[in-house]
Computed example of a mutant assay.
Amino acid sequence: MAERKKRQSNNVRTLENDYVRSTETHVQYSRKQKVRTRRRLTVFGLLATIVLVFLISTSLTQNKRLAEKQQQKEEVVAKLDEVKEQQDMLNLQIAKLEDDEYIAKLARKEYFLSDDGEIIFTIPEDEEKDEKSNNISN
């Protein structure tokens, strides 16, 4: 039976009139339109994918760079705090050094100078502390 249908389809001849030709032309045009549409969608999809990948990579790069800058900022802020603390300490020392009594006290302590009628006794505290720490650790 299958062979019979094949033979019949070979024996069938298409009509040659305006309606059949216009229908075939319309079908061919529809097929070409579908192919063009698929191609356009494929190209658009490819472009959209490329743009999306570019935007995502740019975003990731910027996030990485932002994290690095944030880390640098934290380090600089910590360093700034240390410098401000040191500056406050130095300003305090400057204020103390402007005081004559403090300078006199410092000179007596560091250079073993004395006022009139004072006697200076030196006690070796460092050696005693070293001996105590050695005894405690043993």
Rank of each mutant, 00 (worst) to 15 (best):
S9R: 13
N138R: 07
Q93W: 02
L52S: 15
T61F: 13
E74W: 00
F121A: 08
T49V: 05
P124T: 09
I50Y: 05
K64W: 09
E101V: 09
R21T: 15
K96P: 00
S114K: 08
Q72P: 00
I120N: 10
R39E: 07
T61Y: 15
L106K: 13
N91P: 01
L97R: 04
F54P: 00
Q28E: 14
E24G: 05
A104E: 08
K34H: 05
L90S: 04
I120W: 04
R13H: 11
N134P: 00
I50C: 07
L52F: 11
R40D: 09
E16L: 10
V12G: 03
S59A: 12
T23D: 06
K6C: 06
N63M: 14
D116L: 05
K105A: 15
Q33R: 14
Y102C: 00
T58K: 09
E98V: 03
G45Q: 03
K105N: 15
R4L: 02
F112K: 15
R21V: 09
F44N: 11
D81I: 06
E3R: 02
E68K: 15
N10D: 12
G45V: 07
S137Y: 05
T23W: 09
Y19M: 06
V77F: 02
A95H: 10
L41W: 00
E24R: 09
V20R: 13
N135C: 02
S59N: 11
L55H: 08
M1T: 09
K105L: 10
I50D: 08
S30G: 07
R31W: 00
N63K: 12
A48I: 10
K64S: 15
L55Y: 14
S133P: 02
K6A: 15
V77R: 05
G45N: 13
F54L: 15
T25A: 13
L52P: 00
A104C: 01
Q62Y: 15
K64L: 10
K109H: 10
S59C: 06
S30Y: 03
K105I: 07
T49K: 06
K34S: 10
K5G: 02
I136G: 01
I120Y: 06
K105P: 00
R65M: 07
L97M: 12
D130H: 04
